[in-house]
Structures are given as C-alpha cells and as structure tokens.
Design a binder for these strands. Structure first.
Length: 641
DNA sequence: TAGGGCTCCT
C-alpha cells in the first residue's frame, strides 16, 4: 500500500502538477504536510521551492501524506480556479484508495463547484456511493453562486426529502438562491419561516442572506427588522444593508447606516466604501461622497481597485473628470475595471482624444481590452465625432476575436449618423449580422433629428415604436422632427398617437446641489421661494445673451401654441431656472453643475453656451446620455448629442 | 470538506 502511494506521488510530481500549479509557498508544505506528520521544523524546508525534497521525507507515511497532498493540490486548484489541473488530480484520486471517501469526494465536488464547472460537480455528486449533508450543501452553494438558483432550490427540496438536515451553511446558500430566483416571490418568505423554525434566522450568516433577499425584493422594512433582530452583527451584515439601500437609490439612508456603523465601532471595508460611492454617483450626492472619501483617506484605508473604481465613476458622474483621472493615477494596482471606468468617464464627457490615448496606453501596458473597453472607446469616438478612429477600433475589436454586441452597433450607427452619412448608417443597419434593436433605430432617429431628415426619421421611428412602444423619447423626437420642418399636421398625428397609446412624456426636471442640499426645478415652477429673484436673474441673463445673438428656437416646445407663447414657454425650462438659481447662489467664477432627468433641450443648449460666455463660468450639465461642458460660448459635445 | 455582502456597460 505504501509503495503504491509513493509511486502515485512520484507520478504526480513527474506529471509536473506541482510545477504547473505555480508557486505554492514552502511554508504551506510545512504547515499542511510536515508538521502534522511530526517532522521537525527545518529552515531549508521553508526556503525550498523544490517540492521533491519534501516528498523524500514523506516516504515513511505515504497514505497520510498523499491525502494531505491531494487536499492541498485541490485547495490550490479551487483558489486559483484551475479546473484542468483539478481534473488531473481527480483522475489520480479516482484510482486511489480514497476514491470512495465522502470527505475526499466532497473536496473534489467543492473544487468543481467553486470553479463554476457545475456539470462536473453534478457528475461527482451523482456518482458518489455515499453522501453527507456537506455534499448536498456544497452542490447547492455551487448552483447558488453560479447563476443557477432554480437548480439550488430543487436540490434543497431533494435534500429534505432524502432526510438530510440543513444547517446554517445550507440555509444561507439556499436563501441567496431564493433572492435570485424570483423578483419578489413567496418562496423567500417561506424559507424565512423555515429558518425561523430551525432556529437559524438570527444567525449572522443566514440573517445576512435574508437581509440581502429582502433588500432585493424591495422590502426594506422587512430587511431592517431582520437586521435589528440579528444576535450578532459583523461587517457583512452592515454592508448588506448599506448595499441594499444604495441599490435602491436610498443614498441618504445608506449614508445614515454607514455613520451608524462607524458609531458602533465597525470598520468599513472596501465593500462599504464601494456601495456608498456607487450610491452617491448614481444619485449625484457629490459632497457626501467626497466626505466619505475624505474619511477613507483619514482612516488610512488603502485605495484598492475595488473601491477606487467606484470612486472614479463617482467623480466622473459628478462632473469632475479631472478628479476621476487623479484617482486612477493614484491606484496602487489597476484592474481591467479601473481602465474601463476611466474610459467610460471620458466617453460620457465627450473627451474622445483622451479616451483614445488611454486606450492606447492600456494596450501598451499589456492589458487586454474587453467588450466594455471597446464599447467605451467607440462611444467616446462617436460622442466626439472621431469617425476614422471609431471605425479603426470597431475593426480592431473584431480582429481581437470579440463579437460585437448590439450596443457596439449602436455606437457605429451613431458615429455614421453624426457625420451626416445617413444612407451609410441605414445600409450598415441592414447589413449587420444581428437583428437591429430599438436602441440601434433610436440612434438613427436621433441622427435624423440632427440632420433634419424627415422621411428617414419617420421610417426609423416606426421601427422604434414597434420594438419599444413605451419609451416616450422617440415620440418626442419624431414630433420635433416634424415640428422643426413645419409639418404640424404630422406632428399633431404623433401627439394624438401618444395620447391614444397612453405614452406619457416624462416631466422634465433639473437639479443643482449647493452646500449639501439638492434643489430641484420643474418647468414653470410657481412654488419656489426664490421664484421672483430667479425670474429677474434669468431676464437679466436673457437680455445679455440676446445681445450676443441668441434667438429662441421655438421648435423645442412640444405644444402647438402661438409664437409669442412658445418663446415665453421656452424661457421657463427647468435647466434655465436651475441655472439662474445656481448663478444666484454660488460664488462668482466657480463651476456650476446641473443635472437633468432627460436629454437637454436644443434651445437651452444654445442659451447655456452663451451664458457660459456672458458670466465667464464653466457650466457642466449632465443629462441622461452624457455630460456637456459649456465654456466660453462652446460646448464639449460639439453640438451633437 | 460546505455559507452571506461584489465596483465598470447603449
């Protein structure tokens, strides 16, 4: 028996499994193999990078050493997700005296499950002569962690039928599966009842899973109840609650829980920071986000990619593209998401040249761009009108073996549309190997609006209405195309159709953040306490920009009323009111940040360009698509958005 | 030998 084991060990070594696994540190050999066998500590052993010397020492107890070796190799394969090498170890285990051992098979099953090789894991499970509750739990968590929640739930029911008793490990995985399996079903609540009956509902692991499940269902009060009842809390339970509120745009609540977490003496991790920064960026709470960033620096937390990437996104989405770059430069170690975050930021701000430079820098650093990197650089090219560069990267992407997805095609249609070559854009749509999506037709529709092509615009709009009938945006764009061409009958028809189909234009609103407070404005707002001052300020600005040649473009008023009334209507658009308010309440010379829930209107765009010149200030407007940097009478979008 | 939180995307 002994000689067989040793010979398997030698064969493993001769198969270069050890070497193929890379650097298993020598102390690990000592801790896992040598010490349990009672060998004395040996400095040479610690320093040795050559496993052979270690195994020379093991000949005295082959079976135990071999079990340790298999466990250690499988652990290494699991951690480094090297399933191919795991299969080689599996082949040896299958021929060994351990092949029927439950624990050894559980380890193998775990290796496959963790690597996401669920078919292999299932095969091990099915072929096991004996199973225990760990066997069931391991496969359930494998399914749960790798996007097969229904399989996890089915297996859980089978487990119960076979008479196995689940424990806190099983339940935390199965609750996670329930949260992913259905948007808001009763299955999760039934499971909660089951956990309660088993006495696991207050356990920190099961409780955190339940808490997460309720936040995903949107049942925040239930989540809070679970959290309050937990018998103990750790950083994960706090982070789950913070992340839950952050995901649901409950930024203020997320910040409040974060502060409570600090008060109760828990140290935030990069998960906490990442959730907070993500929440601040999606809702535009820049000042609060900066405060948390400052706290992070003060507490000595290192800027790792995980939180740093969200911070890049936060600064970029708040309009501070230069701060986003600073964070990127300070990251000790960057991953692909770091590069993509900054690329995306440049794309959203219309910094096409910078995006192209960064993309090249990335390739020089031997980082392989993925489909998001290409999407970002293509979007940046289209937002800056870099037609040739855009084509170049589209071809490069295909050469690199990345199959373009619908959103890549959108950017190319946008790029061609922007250049004014609408026929080529249409030809491109007809020749693409995928079925055009609503977004692709929307890109063409938008180009038709820009270049005032009524016929093609109507054609593109028909496709959009068919594929995405509920989006009010395209109806408004088609209305504007007809209106700006003076075709009021057609425009009225679009309006009638909107009414009949129940599609409602989203009410426009703009907001500014001044000294930690968000001020929101809607068109013709009569209720604002400073409305008279705002109105006077705008009239003053209006007179100045008129002197510079501003002519109100009344085609942007989506109501067919007389010319004078249309001009008046235009002057009370929410972005103009927000701008007047910001001018009244911020120091001269400072940058003004405005956010809008829909696309900036064309007339406001022309007006804000001139305002930036008149007041000599930079004005940054974020709408649903992108950022506009207005400075000295021009906009970074080059009037195409 | 098994568990919970995970950033970038038209």
């Amino acid at each position: 028996m002994l000689s067989t084991s040793v010979s398997v060990t030698s064969r493993l070594l001769s198969l270069k499994i050890y070497r193929g696994l890379g650097s298993i540190p020598a102390p690990l050999y000592y801790d896992s193999i040598i010490e349990p066998l009672g060998f004395p500590s040996n400095d040479n052993l610690h320093r040795s990078s050559n496993g052979v010397r270690v195994f020379d020492l093991l000949e005295g107890n082959g079976a135990t050493a071999l079990r340790c070796l298999y466990n250690m190799l499988l652990k290494e394969c699991t951690v480094s997700k090297r399933v191919d090498q795991g299969k080689t170890v599996h082949a040896h285990v299958a021929k060994s005296l351990f092949r029927c051992e439950v624990v050894m098979n559980n380890t193998l099953l775990n290796m496959y499950a963790k690597c996401g090789s669920l078919e292999e894991a299932r095969k091990v499970f099915d072929e096991m002569p004996q199973r225990d509750f760990v066997t069931w739990t391991t496969l359930i968590s494998g399914y749960s962690q790798h996007g097969q929640p229904i399989d996890a739930l089915v297996l859980f029911i089978q487990m119960l039928r076979d008479g196995f008793i689940p424990n806190e490990f099983t339940l935390s995985s199965v609750v996670k599966a329930a949260a992913a399996a259905e948007p808001r079903g009763c299955c999760g609540q039934q499971l909660h009842g089951f956990c309660l009956k088993c006495g696991y509902d207050l356990n920190v692991h099961v409780g955190s899973s339940l808490l997460d499940m309720y936040t995903r269902y949107g049942l925040m009060d239930d989540a809070q109840l679970v959290f309050d009842a937990l018998e103990s809390r750790n950083d994960v339970s706090w982070n789950v609650l913070i992340a839950g509120h952050a995901r649901r745009c409950g930024t203020e609540k997320a910040l409040e829980i974060f502060q409570r977490m600090l008060r109760e003496g828990f140290r935030p991790s990069h998960f906490s920071y990442s959730s907070i920064f993500g929440a601040c960026s999606s809702t535009g709470f820049l000042e609060q986000g900066k405060w948390v960033h400052a706290y992070m620096i003060k507490s000595g937390e290192k800027l790792v990619a995980f939180a740093g990437n969200t911070l890049i996104d936060m600064y970029a989405k708040s309009g501070s593209i230069h701060d986003a770059r600073k964070i990127f430069d300070r990251l000790a170690k960057r991953d692909i998401v770091s590069w993509n975050s900054l690329l995306t930021a440049y794309a959203q701000h219309g910094f096409g040249r910078e995006a192209v430079c960064l993309f090249e820098e990335m390739r020089k650093a031997e980082i392989t761009p993925n489909e998001i990197s290409f999407l970002s650089v293509l979007t940046a090219c289209s937002h800056s009108g870099l037609l040739d560069e855009g084509w170049h990267y589209f071809e490069l992407m295909k050469r690199d073996g990345i199959v373009p997805k619908a959103w890549h095609y959108v950017t190319i249609v946008d790029l061609l549309g922007r250049s004014g070559d609408l026929d080529r854009a249409l030809r491109f749509i007809r020749e693409m190997p995928i079925e055009p999506t609503a977004a692709i037709w929307k890109a063409l529709l938008n180009a038709c609006r820009m270049h005032k092509n009524v016929e093609l615009g109507a054609y593109a709009a028909e496709h959009v209405f068919e594929l995405d009938p509920d989006d009010p945006g395209p109806h408004v764009i088609l209305y504007n195309i007809y209106a700006s061409g003076g075709r009021w009958n057609d425009a009225a028809r679009v309006r009638k159709k909107m009414k009949e189909s129940g599609v409602k234009k989203e009410p426009a609103c703009s907001w500014v953040e001044i000294e930690n407070a968000i001020h929101m404005f809607v068109a013709n707002d009569e209720r604002h306490p400073q409305r008279e001052e705002i109105s006077r300020k705008w009239e003053e600005i209006y007179a100045k920009i008129k002197d510079l040649g501003y002519v109100p473009d009344t085609s942007h008023v989506v109501v067919h009323v007389d010319q004078q009334e249309r001009e008046v209507n235009l002057q009370y658009h929410s972005e103009k009111t927000a701008l007047a308010f910001a001018l009244l309440n911020t120091p001269p010379g400072s940058t003004i940040h405005i956010k809008k829930n829909i696309r900036v209107c064309g007339d406001c765009h022309s007006a804000i360009k001139l305002v930036s010149k008149v007041v000599e200030r930079e004005i940054i407007v974020r709408d649903t698509n992108r950022f506009h940097h207005f400075r000295d009478g021009t906009c970074s979008c080059g009037d195409y958005w």
